[in-house]
Amino acid sequence: MAAMSSIHESALAYRGRRYLWVALALTAASVLAYAWHSPAVPPNGGTWLGYTLGTVAALLILLLLALGIRKRSYHSTLGTVSGWVSAHVYLGLALVVVATLHTGFHFGRNVHTLAYVLMCLVIALGIVGVVLYARYPARMSVNRQGRARAQLVEEVNDLNARALRVAQPLPAEFLAAVRSARDRLVLGGNAWTLLTGRDRSRVVLPGSDGASAPLANPFQATLIAWLGDRLARCQDGEVAPRIQSLLTLISAQRVAIERLKRDLAFQARLDAWLYLHVPLSFALLAALLAHVVSVFLYW
């Protein structure tokens, strides 16, 4: 597989990983300060260092949340979105260390620990996101083989039209079967179907007893099996080659549907990740506000 082109600079590699170094420096400074600091009471959020680390952590959270605003500020010239994402990833990782040191390792069943747990969840999800973003695009690209998604859909439809034409002169049941598979072809579906890449298409096959119930036809498998069966039994030297070419077309369609479903699944997972990461971040923001307000109230 081709490597990344040298001219394209990924968000993680942005400007020689500038924000990785910033994040490392921040982490190192926090750890050193924590090790050097020896307060009269056990380390906690209430000492001067605790307050400092807490303030830094809260500001970091606001900065990380601001990515959502910067991403939508299309006129903004404050850095590039790619640079912001770079900072978001590396500073988000540093936040784990800064915030943990801020707690002084005091946890309990309270709103303070809730904020901490939410933060850890958001960051853990963030790491999942980094992995998805790093892996999926290349896999999607290989899967699509240089074509656009619309072209994949077009290919599926095109193969349908060709199959119908080939089926036209065959006995009526073939046209009925192909038409039914086309009518009951489901390319989209609900969130779960999309995420798992399942194919919930169905087909009504003309059975020996006349009309029968719709059967599951994932990736045209049922139709292919039925056509194979008909071909095996076919005695007619005129009809057999036509069934054969019908089978070839439907098999090609299977490959196209698989590709399309995979592409949609990849995209759905990338989208779904954002639907978890962002609402959880807002929950974190709420918990953080509760934490800060309550600390100042009870102080």
Binding site: A3, M4, S5, S6, I7, H8, E9, S10, A11, A13, Y14, K71, Y74, T80, V81, S82, W84, V85, Y133, P137
Partner: peptide, 21 residues
């Protein structure tokens, strides 16, 4: 606005550089 650094604008003089990678 590209969040991942995937989009660039270049002049054809840099195609060879692009291709090398």
């Amino acid at each position: 606005a590209c969040p991942t650094g995937a989009a660039i604008r270049i002049s054809p003089e840099r195609f060879v550089e692009l291709a090398h990678g």
